[in-house]
Design a protein around this nucleic acid. Structure first.
Lengths: 343, 343
DNA sequence: ACACGCGTTGTGAACGTTCACAAGGATTGT
DNA sequence: ACAATCCTTGTGAACGTTCACAACGCGTGT
């Protein structure tokens, strides 16, 4: 088997600065100046270089640049469950903001619940030499792991009310939960349950806190929240259990999907929402306006969250200051809540 | 202002191969051999190097490696609408598979509908020197743009039945649509509408084709499909329009969200699903089992799709062969379909 | 006319890794 | 005991960019 040289010699590496420089009749440094558009370059020269770049279809080599500057221009996103609407919308917004600022984004998601999975995910991001880290929908466990690694990075956590030494940004979950709860109380409900999220999710905890705070503030008796897993499936089965004892007239679910499952279970039991039981969700995913009945819920502006997150991170990349901010949620009243039927 | 040297000299770049080599008393090349675990290295030496790496917390510099090998070990994902369940699930699976293979993933999403947005997104990926590209939920426009750029990359397109020169992989959309349509016909429906997806989405087109194919095969009259935008919102308004003339007993919606909107509109009109009108969706998103009524739909295994996609791409990175495969969808019958009421 | 300064351009080293190759030591066969 | 061979390790260049600095040319003030 004759190992002849490749038919049409395709050994071509991509064109480099030197190629551009040669074509434009300048030095590589001048090309570099054009690329990073530094001042003190004659307009004519600049144009000549730009033309050459165009002609050769030149693209700066990111790796070489990263090597010498030791800046990767990449930020990492650590996220659990990116198939949920909320995190997905935030990631979207972060990515948009990042690319507008010349950064790129890599994501790593935590698959299981074991702590090794978390470490591996963080490790993968670190391998990319990320300059900043965004943690979305964080669980306690993630925080602990992160704290134990003591990274030298600006970190922004989303949807976390926990004040640590990182920057954090969130929709005010406690307020949101209070709004939802207050709405039910104002309608006249006296026995309200809470279907909460998974225990170690900081978001879930905050919503639970908001619920309990508001109930206490209004001197209402509370029962222990049920801990769910965010899925409609869980909401459905939790609903079936709850309906065995009908000592409540309203449920505040920690997210829209669980609320959906609840409503399913309630109908299955031959009851009606909101006539027999009122339901409030949390998130306002696009579908909830079309659930049956349309869901009363708490709206979070995920996109805004993502944008501000990126601004914060990019700011922090230079200044290194700490900061934490929050965005206000709003209550969206639709068809799943009403005054309790008098019986 | 005395510019004294930094308090605790923190000029520390990260440790490099040379640092490790010095500590272990070997050459940098030996360290390199350990990292890439090449054969022909004494076990004892290897151990010594590994210890030094551990001690210094050494991490290989990805940029330097990429520079010299001109391999970025990164694949790009080009996606529209990543907040939808389907694409999000696929991305998730791709990322998992990629990271298991030592690759990392960057995503770019197409924000608007203008072609410049597409070019910019691709450009951003190219800047990253991606070695392969996955196009998810592709629109015609994206394909055309991509074709016009004639990239030297393995490209895998997901959910596209269009045979071009790239590799492609999809759940068989046409079959899925036929299954859905046949189900309605077998139930006895004679007048069936199709609420399709956006015109230039290849997926939408395939589902429409499947619908028409099956209708024709069974000698059923067809009306022109309505072109939607995948959202529940659109499904709702389309439903309101359609219900003005009640000359149909079933609708096949091109995805679950639009089906949700349709059902909402039908209820608003005082009718019932499936008693008055049957509805079939497409995708089987996790929520649809809990819609009211639970939605009959076509299930696609997005995760499997993502996994196989990555296998294909990684294979193609070496071999460069073309390939296209498809995965079979299944019909999931739930509560939103029934025989038409005789009237 | 001369020095000075400023705007523009060029030179060479450095970043941290891999690659091609060479060199050294131990082992084997005769 | 000597050459041939294999296994292990080291040497130096190269990748494509930025950085620090040097050099050149031209105008300006005296």
């Amino acid at each position: 088997m004759a190992q002849e040289p490749e038919p049409v010699a395709k050994k071509s590496r991509a064109p480099s600065m030197h190629d551009v420089a040669r074509l434009a009749g300048v030095s590589h440094q001048t090309v570099s100046r054009v690329i990073n558009d530094l001042p003190n370059i004659r307009e004519e020269t600049k144009q000549r270089v730009l033309d050459s770049m165009e002609q050769l279809q030149y693209r700066p080599n990111r790796a070489a640049r990263a090597l010498v500057t030791s800046r990767s221009r990449t930020v990492g996103i650590l996220s659990a469950s990116r198939t949920n609407y909320g995190p997905a919308a935030s990631i979207q917004a972060i990515e948009d903001a990042a690319s507008a600022a010349g950064y790129s984004v890599t994501t790593a998601s935590i698959s299981g619940y074991e702590s090794t999975s978390i470490v591996r995910a963080i490790d993968r991001l670190l391998d990319q030499a990320i300059e900043g880290l965004v943690v979305i929908a964080p669980q306690r466990r993630v925080f602990d792991t992160l704290a134990g690694m003591s990274l030298r990075l600006p970190i922004v956590t989303l949807q976390s009310t926990a004040a640590n030494n990182d920057m954090s940004l969130s929709v005010d979950q406690i307020l949101g939960a209070r709004l939802a709860t207050r709405h039910l109380i104002e309608l006249g409900h006296r026995s309200i349950y809470h279907l909460a999220g998974p225990q170690d999710w900081i978001e879930a905890e905050a919503r639970m806190t908001g619920f309990l705070d508001e109930m206490n503030a209004q001197d209402m008796p509370t029962t222990a929240p049920i801990l769910g897993d965010w899925t409609a499936e869980f909401g459905y089965f939790a609903g079936r259990e709850l309906l065995r004892m009908r000592d409540f007239t309203a449920i505040f679910a920690a997210n829209d999907q669980m609320a959906l499952g609840l409503m399913h279970a309630i109908r299955d039991a031959g009851l009606e929402v909101p006539r027999d039981i009122s339901i409030v969700g949390f998130d306002d995913i696009p579908d909830s306006a079309h659930f049956w009945p349309p869901l009363t819920t708490v709206r979070q502006d995920f996109a805004e969250l993502g944008r501000r997150c990126m601004a914060l991170l990019l700011g922090g990349l230079e200044s290194g200051e700490e900061y934490s901010g929050s965005i206000l949620p709003t209550l969206v009243v639709r068809g799943s809540t009403a005054a309790p039927s008098s019986r």
